[in-house]
Design a protein around this nucleic acid. Sequence first.
DNA 1: ATATTTACCGTCCGATCGGTCGGTAATCAA
DNA 2: TTGATTACCGACCGATCGGACGGTAAATAT
Lengths: 216, 216
Amino acid sequence: MAHENGVRTAAHEVPESAAPSVRPRRGRPGHDLGAVLAAAVRLFNERGYEATSMDDVAKRLGITKSSLYHHVAGKQELLRIAVDQALDGLDDAMAEVEREETAAIDRLEMLIRNSVLVLAERLEYVTLLLRVRGNTAVEQQALLRRRVFDAKVTKLVEQAQAEGAIRHDVDAATAARLLFGMVNSLIEWYRPRRGGAAELADAVTIVAFDGLRTRS
Amino acid sequence: MAHENGVRTAAHEVPESAAPSVRPRRGRPGHDLGAVLAAAVRLFNERGYEATSMDDVAKRLGITKSSLYHHVAGKQELLRIAVDQALDGLDDAMAEVEREETAAIDRLEMLIRNSVLVLAERLEYVTLLLRVRGNTAVEQQALLRRRVFDAKVTKLVEQAQAEGAIRHDVDAATAARLLFGMVNSLIEWYRPRRGGAAELADAVTIVAFDGLRTRS
DNA sequence: ATATTTACCGTCCGATCGGTCGGTAATCAA
DNA sequence: TTGATTACCGACCGATCGGACGGTAAATAT
C-alpha cells in the first residue's frame, strides 16, 4: 500500500452522490470537498491531469490556491478520490453480475449493460480513470484494479465460449479487450442525455453480440 | 494555420520509414532527428506528453538538453511531427478506400483492415495521436484532422445502411464511433508480433460485422 | 459574549520547466 | 591544412509548479 501521504482519507469519501444538497453546515459558508472535486475532475479531463495546475482548479472555483489546500491534501489525493469513484462503480457493476447464476453470455451482457450505465453516470470520473498512465503510486494502484476487472471479463468470455454461446474463432482475451475497448470508447464522445444511456447500452450489446451486418 | 513557430518545417519530414539506415552522413556522428523522435515518442507514451520533460528525452538519448535543441526546434514540434506520422498513415488508409468502387460495406471493411494495419505499424505515433487533448494549436490541428476522418467513416456507414448491408436499428454515427472505438482501443493492449496485425484485423472485422454470438 | 468550526487569503519557497546562448569536438571534402 | 558540416555541452534565464505557513473572516453553538 505505502501510505505516501499523511494519515487522513479512509478510502471512499465524499461526493455523497454528487448532490450539492441543502444541508446547512457549521462554519463559514463556501465550497465543500464535493464541489472542489467536481471542478478539479472537469479541468483534468479538459486539459489533462498533468497540464492542470492547482491554481487552475482554484481559479475555476473562484478561490486562491491556498484556500484550495484547505479542502484537499494535494493534487494526487484529488486524483485518487476521483478514480476511486470510477473504480468503485465498476466494481459494483461486476459484483452484481457475479451474484447472478445465469448463463455466462447473459452475465456478460449484463456486465456490458451495467458498465455502460456506470460510464454514463460517472462519465467524468471514468474518463479520468481511463487516461491514467501509471506515473505515480496512486495511478499504479488504479491500473492494478483495472487489470483485476479486465481479468474477470476475460474469464467470463471464456466461460461463455465453453458453454458454446460465443464463437471460438476469436481468442477470449482478444474478444474481451475489443468488447471493453468499444465500451470504454464511449468516454470519447458520449454526452449525457436523459435516457440516452439505456439505448446506448442496447446499441453496444447489439453490435457486440450480433454485429452490424444485416442478415436475412 | 497560424504558423506560431519560426519558418522551418515544411509539413512531412523525417522518419524515412523509421529505418536508422546505413547512410554515412557528413559531420560529427551522433543522433539524427529520427532517433530523437523515436525516443521522444516512446517517452511521451510511457509517461504522457505533459509529464515528459525535454531533459527526460535528452537523458534517454544520452545527451544534454541543449544538444537536443540542436535537433529539434521545441517540444511542440516533436509532438507535431509525431502525430503527423499517424494522421498521414490514417489518411492514406482512407484514400485507398476512397479510390475503390465496391459496395459501401466492403469499403468499410477495407477501411477497418487498413486502419488496424496502420495502427499496428505506427503504433506509437497513433497512440500519441489518440491521447491528444487539444491544449495547443498543434493539438487542435490534430483533432481537426481526426474529426474529418471520423466524418468520412460515418458517411461510409450511412451508405452501407442505404444499401441495406448494415442494420438500421443502430444510428450510423453511433455505429461508426463504436466501430472505431473498438479499433482505436488496440493501442491500449496490442503489442507487435510478426503477422499478428493481419489476424487481429480479422478478429476486429468479425466482431464488428457478425458479432461474438455463435449462430446455428 | 465567547468558543468552535469552517473557509479563505497573501506571501513565500525550492524545484523544475521549456528554451537560449556562446563555445567546443569530431567528421568529411577541398 | 583549412573550411564546412554536424553534434554536443555548460551555464544561464524567466516562468511556473506543488506546496507550506501564519493569519483573518464568517458562520453556528453555548
